[in-house]
Structure formats: structure tokens, C-alpha cells
């Protein structure tokens, strides 16, 4: 029998996604035995031209963010070759950490990189000599370029998401094809799964804003109630709660939960309803402002992983006016 073909392609990747997938160990190898790996820079030695030459791949996995014209070409190439395209990792689906560069724009990003103290002059001249791919104004979501079939969110995708992906791979090898748009992992907000329950689930109130080093955390109590900002209410619960279990608040790396498209605005709205609700009458506007000014870098908190797919970035890039 002919074995199905698998291709794994990198965009702007830090390597974490690859490690997360390989971490599955034996489970991965038993499934990959059923596949022909035609392209995977970390594993097999094939050039990009060879990917172009292959007429059809069964499963194509795209990892990493789309930050340059080359990444976009690559995503399009992979889409045209693969029957099933998997968007793997938050960077691919939402823009991820590289997406924060949208705040600076391509020109300033390049300047920052080229003219730091650690960069020597020869390196500055390099782009003129070599023909490098063009850096996009903002990292972008794969959804703005092509339509994937399967989404595996997470930074990096958790074991449960990876196992769900393996299941899809093993089903495919047996002839069962996935249908429609599939989001792997739990779709509900993280709070549903969280073990740190608030004292009163119907009413959480944040009586202060504190950073982690400023207080002694009570280990089984809700972060928000203790004054620590946690993205749990809007984040997809596609992970196994590694942060929560290790006494750290959620940072939103799985992207927005089901039916939320802009997690930052949604969280901002939720935050306003939780923050200082008991004290607002005494504090009045001035007191509220004083406490809210403790939140520095709101974009970094609310949009750490999803800036390029937010409504906000449309305002920034000015591509919103149809008239």
C-alpha cells in the first residue's frame, strides 16, 4: 500500500513547536512509521525546490509565524500541495509573539535589529548584497493568506493538542479523512477547567492590581481575586494548565476561546467589570485612575499572542476604510 506523505514547513519559528511535537516520543514514531516524510527541515534533508516539485502531499503542517514575503509564499505553496493543511502553534494561527512587532512596523524593527551595539557594520551592509525576502509591516495570521483545515493552538501546543493531532494523523493513515474546520483541544475558556476557584463563582472582584513579585500568592485561590491579571476568562483551554499548576497566571498563549475573536477587547471589558467593584464609590474617578495606572503595557498583557489578528491592528495599519 502507498504510504501517505507528510510535510512540515517552518515560517518564523523559535523551535518550540518542533520540540513540543517531538516530545511525544514513541507515540510519534509509531504513527510516523505509516507516513513518508517528504519535507521537514529538522528531520530530513530536502531542499525547498523539492517541495515545489512534489505534486501532492497528504498532510502539510505549517509551524511558526508569517513575517516575510517568503513565509507567505511558503504557506501558499504548502496549501496548494497538501490535501490537509494543519496550522500548528499560536504564531501561525494568530501571529504570536513575533506579531507584537506590528506595534513598531517593519522599518523600525529592521533599524532596531541593525543598529544595536552588538551588530557590526558588515552585517548592516548584508541586506544590500544578498537578496533577502521582504519583511512584512506586521506578522500576519495564516488565515489572512490561506485557509487551513486543522488548527493546533498553543505556544507550544500542549500534549493533549498534540495527541489529538496524532489521532487525526493515524485516522488518516487508516483512510478516515477529517471533515471541515477542526480546532484541536478544549474550546471553552480556561476558567472552566481551572483548579483555582474563587470564593464566590458568581461574583469575582479584584480589589487591587498586583504584579507577581508584589504579593504572596495563596496557591488554590483565583488569581484575579488576588489582584493578579490572568487571561483565563478569554483564553482557550487547549492546554493542560502548566502555568496555573506552577502558580503562574494564564498569559493567553492558546488564543481566544470559542466565539471570541478579539481576546484583548473582551478581556478589557471583563476586567472593567471585575476591577475594584466594591471600592469604586469611595475611590471615585481619581482613585480608579490611580489604581488602573498600575497596569503598564496593556497591549503586552492583553494581546501578547494575538495582536496581528485583532481588530486593533486594523486601526493601526489603517486598512479599515472601504470608502
Amino acid at each position: 500500500m502507498k504510504r501517505p506523505k507528510l510535510a512540515i514547513v517552518y515560517g518564523a519559528i523559535c523551535g518550540g513547536c518542533d520540540v513540543a511535537l517531538v516530545n511525544l516520543g514513541e507515540k510519534l514514531t509509531t504513527i510516523l512509521e505509516k507516513y513518508d516524510i517528504v519535507y521537514w527541515p529538522a528531520v530530513v534533508d530536502f531542499r525547498r525546490d523539492e517541495l515545489k516539485r512534489i505534486s501532492e502531499v497528504d498532510i502539510g503542517i505549517y509551524m511558526g509565524a508569517l513575517v516575510s514575503s517568503e513565509d507567505i509564499e511558503l504557506a501558499k505553496l504548502l496549501r496548494s500541495r497538501s490535501k490537509i493543511l494543519v496550522a500548528y502553534g499560536t504564531c501561525t494561527i494568530y501571529g504570536g509573539i513575533p506579531g507584537l512587532s506590528a506595534l513598531l512596523g517593519a522599518k523600525r524593527v529592521l533599524e532596531e535589529v541593525r543598529f544595536t551595539l552588538t551588530t557590526s557594520l558588515e552585517e548592516v551592509e548584508l541586506p544590500k548584497l544578498a537578496k533577502l525576502p521582504e519583511l512584512l509591516e506586521s506578522a500576519t495570521s495564516i488565515l489572512k493568506v490561506v485557509e487551513p483545515n486543522i488548527f493546533a493552538p498553543g505556544c507550544p501546543p500542549s500534549d493533549s493538542v498534540n495527541e489529538a493531532l496524532l489521532e487525526v494523523l493515524s485516522d488518516y493513515a487508516r483512510g478516515i479523512k477529517p471533515k471541515g474546520r477542526i480546532f484541536l483541544g478544549e474550546p471553552t475558556p480556561l476558567c472552566n477547567k481551572c483548579t483555582r476557584k474563587p470564593t464566590d463563582t458568581s461574583k469575582i472582584s479584584m480589589s487591587k492590581i498586583r504584579r507577581l513579585h508584589e504579593l504572596k500568592l495563596i496557591e488554590d485561590k483565583c488569581f484575579l481575586e488576588q489582584g493578579v491579571l490572568c487571561m483565563g476568562p478569554v483564553t482557550r483551554a487547549a492546554c493542560d494548565l502548566p502555568c496555573i499548576k506552577n502558580n503562574l497566571p494564564c498569559v493567553g498563549c492558546n488564543g481566544p476561546a470559542l466565539d471570541i475573536d478579539d481576546m484583548g477587547l473582551e478581556m478589557l471589558s471583563a476586567l472593567s467589570s471585575l476591577l475594584l467593584v466594591e471600592e469604586e464609590r469611595e475611590l471615585l474617578e481619581e482613585g480608579l485612575v490611580k489604581e488602573m495606572d498600575r497596569l503598564v503595557d496593556l497591549i503586552g498583557i492583553l494581546y501578547r499572542y494575538t495582536l496581528p489578528s485583532s481588530l486593533l491592528i486594523k486601526l493601526k495599519l489603517g486598512d479599515h476604510r472601504g470608502e
Partner: peptide, 14 residues
């Protein structure tokens, strides 16, 4: 008030 204040902060950062 809280929504607008936080949103103002967000927009000015943008």
C-alpha cells in the same frame, strides 16, 4: 469609566 480609561491607554500605546 474603567472601560474607557483602559481603552484610552490601549489606544495611545497603539
Amino acid at each position: 469609566f474603567k472601560r474607557v480609561y483602559l481603552l484610552k491607554k490601549l489606544l495611545s500605546q497603539l
